[in-house]
Amino acid sequence: MFPERFSNLPAYAFPRLRALLDVHEPGGVVMHMTIGEPKHAFPSWVSEIIAENAEGFGKYPPNDGTPELQNAIRDWIQRRYGVGVEAATQVMPLNGTREGLYNAAMALVPETKGGGQPIVLLPNPFYQVYMIAAISVGAEPMMVPATKETGHLPDYTALPPEVLNRVAVAYICSPANPQGAVASRAYWAELIRLAEKHDFRIFADECYSEIYRGTPPAGALEVAQEIGADPERVVIFHSLSKRSNLPGLRSGFVAGGPECIKRIKQLRAYAGAPLPLPLQKVAERVWADEGHVVENRHLYQQKFEIADKVFGEIPGYQSPEAGFFLWLPVKDGEASALKLWQDTGVRVLPGAYLAREVEGFNPGKEYIRVALVHPNDETERGLMALRNCIYG
């Protein structure tokens, strides 16, 4: 016997992409612009720290993270957002933020809400773990369109009271993957006040917060403090994958109110895996260093400028505010991705694979997502091939 709740899930985005493209020959030198895997160099001292602390692989790491790593994360939150948190009770290092985004739902979504099945709100398009987390805890995943008309962020305030009263958690990604939109202070404040009114929590996925152009994006915890919200109202998730070009380190953190973090830690004790000690030592140092982050951000800003030069005259093109994806308008995402592959060898992701059809509408169908992770010359080559193939 297998659980029925997972029986009707569509294939994950990348197996779908392989099924679409791999039965066809590429039309040129293959270039992958699909996965958001950073290609910039991580700090040179990372390997040295691992080697210096290699004996730690012979020990079980503490469930809640080392005090030194907790303190480093606390200090970063204070520097970045001006928010003071208690390292021991309001922070937990994660073995990758996907773990945290999933397990926070397991730990914090109640069995019922508002007299019925709890609802978990998701932006549409969305990071797929949000939906699986909702299904796993017996909640109803409700996908709210994040379109050009809504600033590529979901308008949860437009939902009726009878829906909002059943909401247990609202996921929000800012800067948004895939669109690169950034939640303003006003957006966060309105959403947090809505959560206070209808008694739900906000899970703020802020993994792209350090890749931006211009003003640093406001944070959910920062705005919650400014408006005097309940400390348990907002839970934030951050990662070293994008900030520091360390996706293989699998290191991030969750932070929030003491009761939320207590429950997440309790679940981790039974069903989680803390980061190995040598990797915690690396993370401790990386969170404390901003020099490499500034340089990394500068490299992405150069790629934004390349993209603006290549696509600036394309109707409907919107330059991303943050993150490292382009969300390019096309007539049909699947058809465009297939044509691009067959004609040029450049590989991109149909936007429909990152979204779901609701009431006959898939908000990603007329888009492709393009990852700006390659060196500048390769990035320009891939984008020029894309423009000439798709837009003529």
Score class of each variant (00 low, 15 high):
residue 9 L to H: 05
residue 20 L to E: 05
residue 21 L to A: 04
residue 22 D to V: 01
residue 22 D to Y: 14
residue 23 V to I: 12
residue 24 H to A: 14
residue 24 H to C: 03
residue 25 E to N: 05
residue 25 E to G: 01
residue 28 G to M: 09
residue 28 G to L: 08
residue 29 V to I: 03
residue 35 I to V: 11
residue 40 H to D: 07
residue 40 H to L: 13
residue 41 A to I: 01
residue 43 P to C: 06
residue 43 P to Q: 03
residue 45 W to P: 01
residue 46 V to C: 09
residue 47 S to F: 02
residue 54 A to C: 03
residue 68 E to R: 11
residue 69 L to W: 12
residue 72 A to H: 06
residue 73 I to W: 12
residue 77 I to D: 03
residue 77 I to F: 02
residue 78 Q to R: 15
residue 78 Q to W: 12
residue 78 Q to P: 00
residue 79 R to T: 05
residue 84 G to H: 13
residue 85 V to M: 11
residue 107 A to E: 05
residue 109 V to K: 03
residue 124 N to L: 09
residue 126 F to M: 12
residue 127 Y to I: 11
residue 131 M to W: 03
residue 131 M to F: 01
residue 136 S to D: 10
residue 140 E to F: 06
residue 146 A to D: 13
residue 147 T to S: 10
residue 150 T to D: 10
residue 151 G to M: 07
residue 166 R to A: 09
residue 170 A to P: 06
residue 173 C to N: 14
residue 175 P to T: 15
residue 176 A to T: 05
residue 178 P to Y: 04
residue 180 G to H: 08
residue 185 R to W: 06
residue 186 A to T: 12
residue 190 E to T: 08
residue 199 D to C: 03
residue 201 R to G: 07
residue 203 F to I: 03
residue 207 C to V: 09
residue 208 Y to S: 11
residue 216 P to C: 03
residue 216 P to G: 03
residue 218 A to T: 02
residue 225 Q to M: 13
residue 227 I to Y: 10
residue 229 A to T: 04
residue 232 E to Q: 09
residue 237 F to M: 07
residue 241 S to M: 10
residue 245 N to I: 02
residue 247 P to T: 05
residue 249 L to H: 08
residue 252 G to K: 07
residue 254 V to N: 07
residue 256 G to F: 03
residue 257 G to Q: 05
residue 258 P to N: 02
residue 262 K to N: 14
residue 263 R to P: 01
residue 265 K to D: 00
residue 265 K to E: 04
residue 267 L to C: 00
residue 270 Y to T: 14
residue 276 P to A: 15
residue 276 P to M: 01
residue 277 L to P: 04
residue 278 P to W: 05
residue 279 L to R: 13
residue 285 R to H: 08
residue 286 V to E: 13
residue 288 A to L: 08
residue 288 A to G: 03
residue 290 E to M: 14
residue 290 E to K: 10
residue 298 H to N: 05
residue 301 Q to N: 13
residue 303 K to P: 04
residue 304 F to W: 15
residue 307 A to W: 02
residue 313 E to K: 09
residue 317 Y to Q: 02
residue 318 Q to Y: 01
residue 320 P to T: 07
residue 321 E to N: 00
residue 324 F to I: 06
residue 327 W to C: 02
residue 331 K to Q: 14
residue 332 D to Y: 07
residue 338 L to W: 07
residue 345 G to L: 10
residue 348 V to I: 13
residue 349 L to Y: 01
residue 358 V to A: 10
residue 364 G to S: 12
residue 364 G to Q: 14
residue 367 Y to W: 13
residue 374 H to K: 08
residue 377 D to T: 09
residue 379 T to V: 10
residue 381 R to L: 12
residue 385 A to Y: 08
residue 388 N to K: 09
residue 389 C to W: 07
residue 390 I to S: 08
residue 390 I to A: 08
